[in-house]
């Protein structure tokens, strides 16, 4: 994992990123440039490359290693010829999501949104969608902790408006 302690392989230029809680991560330049937000720091400001610490206020250090791992692997997948088999990419993606709680997933979506990387954001939003697919309203509400601020009458009226959508759900 990327951490400030990695000092070997000094050939590749490193960029230091600072997570929300102040922890530093040293990242290879091509990996860091996958994040548009980081890239925007340096565009037209090449002098800043040296000794610049990039603060990423919406990314906690908890998620940083996983996110960097995603960038590393996916940029490697893209470069490889012939392209890696779909199973390999799928296996990596599944392993990436394994053991991630819903809350962690949402925090990572926030982070991906902030870092402005389409690939990660698309991947995570799809994962979130998969978790609420064909579930009842009550399930989705409990799942994400959404507070219902409708009165029973209002809710009944909205349900009646689109009655067709509310039949035939998975039981859970």
């Amino acid at each position: 994992m990327a951490s400030s302690s990695s000092s070997s392989s000094t050939q590749v230029k490193k960029i230091t990123l600072k997570a929300a809680d102040g922890k530093h991560f040293e990242v290879e330049e091509p990996v860091a440039m996958e994040m548009e937000t980081v890239k925007s720091f340096f565009v037209g400001n090449e002098d800043a490359m040296k000794d610049m610490v990039v603060p990423l206020l919406n990314v906690s250090s908890e998620h940083m290693p996983a996110i960097l791992d995603f960038y590393r692997n996916h940029s490697e997948f893209r470069k490889r010829t012939p392209p890696p088999p779909a199973e390999e990419v799928k296996a990596f993606n599944e392993a990436f999501l394994e053991n991630k709680s819903d809350e962690q997933l949402m925090e990572m979506i926030m982070a991906a949104n902030f870092l402005n990387t389409k690939e990660l954001l698309n991947f995570l939003t799809e994962a979130a969608a998969n978790r609420i697919k064909n579930k009842s309203v009550e399930y989705v509400r409990a799942f994400f902790g959404i507070e219902n601020d409708f009165t029973p009458e209002e809710e009944a009226r909205i349900r009646a408006e689109n009655e067709w959508a509310f039949d035939g759900l998975d039981e859970d």
Partner: peptide, 8 residues
């Protein structure tokens, strides 16, 4: 469409 009843 079902998400319309989650909250306002």
């Amino acid at each position: 469409v079902k998400t319309s009843v989650l909250s306002s």
